[in-house]
Amino acid sequence: MQFNFNSTEPIYLQVARQIEDAIFTGGFHEGEQVPSTTEISREFHINPATVLKGMNLLVSQGLIEKHRGVGMFVSKGAHGQIIQARQQDFYEKYVIKVVTEAVKLDISKEELNRLIEQGYQYEGNRS
């Protein structure tokens, strides 16, 4: 796991997002143990209370679960849940931004559609 912190966003949110990213990209598989609070705080010099707060956020979202005395594990269905949530966010987070920028740059709807087509081809060739 590789954490990259910036200094302006609340650390607990960053901790939660980094773990979520790792589940999304397959770094942690479902049913697998995630690093303990102490391990994460020790490695990145973060206050354990802050790390715990981030972890608890994921627990409340049902992405990870506490096994008493053992540690935290990735919940069944966590991967699917993340994909679903990100699909829902996709329009707001990306599409609106792209269109707003395109309008500013005088890129027409047809031109944008063509660019999207091109992007899909590039992705297709890569994989």
Binding site: H45, N47, P48
Partner: peptide
């Protein structure tokens, strides 16, 4: 810093 956090935990 690592040992500090460990000790504190």
């Amino acid at each position: 810093y690592k040992e500090l956090v460990q000790s504190y935990s």
